[in-house]
């Protein structure tokens, strides 16, 4: 099987801060891969570097067999799309859902916009009643559905997910996670998902990489994590923390 995303020795430097220190990674086509870590681990930076939103200092990123240069072309964005963490910040405050979904179609010159918007809204379970609403008329979960619809409307093969549910209530989170799994199954998508929550990553992903301070700590399968077969102390700490508070006294 070919690699959907292959990253080799990736370094990202903001000003003088090394956010990523030579990270390598391979995501197989059709796989769901998780990146886990705490704030400052570089997991979101890695995702943004792939999307072309972070300054790559050295190393290489290959997507579907094509090595990426410093600039992304339009064809890249038809292959790779992203869903952001904060549904309140990722939708333009002055645009209706309709306008938000139309924009990618207009940029890429699709003619059958009407049909595609309708289908995209149906796919994320919103229906046409939401089409002409502004984002402030939507709840957090609905906003995230719109963001997913926008990411899917160009029919990419790879979806980058940056903590897509961490700003949502638990019950809404379940709905959005189910939706993501469903579209992945239906469209045979490759997921690269960032989360600080081990439970979410093991639920969504087959393999995962634990990161800390801009470096990879270890690579695991979800099954290994479930069985607590981890080798690094840091991962063990994360696992323990995810089980809730334990009174020591």
């Amino acid at each position: 099987m070919t690699a959907a995303i292959a990253i080799d020795g990736l370094e990202v430097i903001f000003d003088r801060f090394r956010a990523l220190k030579g990270v390598s990674l391979e995501v197989r086509s059709g796989e769901s891969f998780g990146l886990v870590g705490e704030s400052g681990s570089g997991k979101s930076t890695l995702l943004r570097a792939i999307a072309g939103l972070a300054p790559v200092a050295s190393g290489s990123i290959t997507v579907n067999g094509k090595k990426l240069g410093p600039r992304r072309d339009k064809a890249f964005y038809r292959e790779v799309q992203m869903v952001f963490q904060d549904p309140y910040g990722s939708l333009h405050p002055r645009q209706t859902v309709d306008r938000l979904l139309q924009e990618p179609l207009a940029i890429h010159g699709f003619a059958d916009g009407e049909k595609r918007i309708q289908r995209a809204l149906d796919e994320v379970g919103l229906g046409s009643g939401f089409r002409f609403r502004y984002s402030h008329q939507l709840s957090g979960g609905q906003r995230q559905r719109v963001a997913i619809a926008r990411a899917l409307i160009l029919e990419p093969s790879i979806l980058l997910l940056d903590e897509p549910t961490s700003a949502l209530d638990a019950s809404v989170q379940a709905e959005v996670l189910n939706l993501l799994e469903e579209v992945r199954r239906r469209r045979k998508l490759t997921f690269l998902m960032v989360s600080h929550d081990l439970a979410i990553v093991t639920h969504m992903c087959e393999r995962l990489m634990v990161m800390q301070g801009g470096e990879a700590v270890e690579n695991l399968t979800a099954a290994q994590l479930v069985a607590h077969r981890v080798t690094e102390d840091y991962t063990r700490n994360l696992l323990r923390a995810s089980e809730g508070f334990v009174r020591t006294a």
Binding site: A170, S171, Q173, A174, L177, E181, A199, V226, L239
Partner: peptide
Amino acid sequence: RGLLNCMPRIGFERHPLPVLDR
């Protein structure tokens, strides 16, 4: 119960996750 159930937990495979029916 719904709130407790709908969260993914390590070692409990449930696909899809049960959702809250308000």
